[in-house]
Design a protein around this nucleic acid. Structure first.
Length: 492
DNA sequence: TGAAATGTTGGGGCG
DNA sequence: ACGCCCCAACATTTC
């Protein structure tokens, strides 16, 4: 390496604590007096490869990204090395910056999306050819996808043995601290203005409901973890399935953008165990960490099966008789299916950029099984509307529900929206919050308004088909149709 | 990280 | 006292 500055290329690691690439840069700076240039590149040019993910984040993700970058920018200002924002193809932008600053090295934390893997590999070899020190680090996973192997040497395809194998390994290292300061590059490197990127929605501002529910950025992530461990972990084992309660961690967007690392989460749980003594909810902790395990598994799958976002993992499903049903898809997207628990979930998603995981399974089952609409339509909608939209989790999750994925739910496992509603929203609080037009219905009929007698509907001042849709399918019939469709591909 | 259909069991009412 | 029926409640099977 020459004595030029070190570029730290931020991607899905928008934090300064436990950031291995940043730490390595700070260390090099401390040892050799190097300066540091933190950079974020918005690669907006949707490439011809059809690549998805951080190249073309959905609307909700862009809202989050804006605020997360603003927070990171402030944190880096405080450290003394302002964040440089650039738009363009990453390979070109990085090369440009390397040339402009005479950089000696470029450090980053690894991403696992197929296009990112390919892109980063090219960039790394190109930099190394020029004698630039290009180094990548693990900042996003507890275990690298290539480190976890079955006894026969391949990737895992089933979650339980995968996570067991992970837990049998030495636990993840303690998270690193944020550098205390950085020496800024003293040459001239222009940054674009975040506001010019128009990541935020303007008319209409559909993100209004996001602001009071989320605090993007590293500080918000840390606070969320702390609140979760203090207030919800004890109830997590039983409560996590209740969309009417507040017992999930809601860390998903923070994890997606790397505002907090899974290592920090893991050790946060450890610390809580040590400080709380005998009253510690071991079962809740185990279940919570196993959700972190699902995130690991999804990334493992995406890394080893890069076609996961586009094609069926189980190719039997290539012959599955999906229906073309734009009207049904639209009703699902807008929360107008006539099934209260489904509509509640879809409206929560639209209003807040997030949906409770139990309800994600219910609405996904409804789209793929009751409506027989291809899972990729659901995947695309979630990718556009979730603040936590993550290619690995989203693709694996949708294929899991549809039955086409690795370790998937069997296709015949069809959720009954009424039963699920009664079971997991027993008092109807969740449905009443998000489907207010039927809030006056008594609990007995809330999950299935069409079964209410006329006088009950009149009492609630509710006319089905006018104030709230009649169900767009008959669940019993739809279920049989789905089982029938499954039968068609079973033997193939 | 289902649901529905079908099968089994056991208590109580009744002749 | 006994067998019979009914039907929850639970268990098993099937999709």
């Amino acid at each position: 390496m020459g004595d030029g500055p070190v570029i730290v290329w931020f991607r899905q690691d928008l934090r300064i604590a436990d950031n291995p690439a940043l730490s390595a840069a700070a260390k090099a700076a401390g040892a050799d007096g190097r300066t540091v240039i933190p950079v974020f590149v918005l690669d907006d040019a949707a490439p011809d490869t059809g690549a998805k993910g951080d190249l073309c984040p959905g609307g909700a993700s862009r809202w989050w990204l804006h605020h997360s970058l603003a927070a990171l920018g402030e944190a880096l200002d405080d450290l003394g090395a302002p964040l440089v924002l650039r738009r363009g193809r990453a390979a070109e932008v990085i090369q440009e910056l390397v040339d402009a600053a005479g950089a000696a090295a470029v450090f980053w934390n690894r991403c696992y999306e197929p296009h990112a893997v390919a892109r980063d590999r090219k960039i790394k070899s190109s930099l190394q050819d020029q004698g630039i020190g290009a180094r990548s680090f693990n900042g996003a996973l507890l275990f690298e996808p290539w480190e976890i192997e079955t006894s026969s040497g391949g990737p895992y395809r089933v979650y339980t043995p995968f996570w067991k194998a992970c837990l049998a390994r030495p636990g993840p290292e303690a998270p690193g601290r944020a550098p205390e300061s950085l020496k800024a590059y003293d040459g001239k490197i222009e940054s674009e203005a975040l506001d010019d990127w128009t990541l935020l929605p303007d008319r209409p501002n559909w993100a209004q409901g996001f602001e009071d529910r989320w605090t993007p950025g590293e500080a918000g992530a840390r606070a969320r973890l702390g609140d979760f461990l203090d207030e919800a972990l004890a109830d997590y084992a039983d409560g996590r399935d209740r969309p009417d309660k507040d017992f999930t961690s809601r860390l998903s967007p923070h994890l997606h953008f790397g505002e907090i690392s899974p290592r920090q989460v893991w050790h946060g749980v450890e610390r809580a165990r040590q400080t709380s003594g005998s009253g510690f909810p071991e079962q809740g902790a185990r279940k919570f960490l196993s959700e972190i395990g699902w995130r690991e598994f999804c990334h493992h799958l995406l890394f080893h099966f890069p076609t996961l976002p586009h094609g069926n993992y189980n190719d039997k499903f290539d012959d599955f008789p999906w229906r073309n049903d734009p009207g049904g898809l639209r009703a699902w997207q807008t929360g107008q299916t006539g099934f209260p628990i489904v509509d509640a979930g879809m409206r929560q998603l639209w209003a807040t950029g997030w949906m409770h995981n139990r309800v994600r399974m219910i609405v996904a089952s409804f789209l793929t099984k009751d409506l027989l609409v291809h899972w990729r339509h659901g995947e695309a909608w979630f990718r556009d509307t979730l603040v936590d939209a993550d290619l690995a989790n989203n693709a694996a999750g949708w294929q899991w529900v549809a039955g086409s994925g690795a370790d998937a739910a069997p296709y015949f496992r069809v959720f009954n929206p009424m039963t699920q509603g009664k079971k997991f929203d027993p008092d109807g609080d969740y449905v009443r919050e998000w489907v207010p037009e039927i809030a006056a219905l008594p609990g007995k009929y809330l999950q299935a308004p069409w079964t209410a007698p006329d006088d009950v509907l009149a009492e609630a001042e509710l006319e089905l088909g006018r104030d709230y849709p009649k169900p767009i399918v008959d669940h019993k019939t739809a279920r049989e149709r789905a089982l029938d469709a499954y039968g068609q591909i079973k033997g193939s």
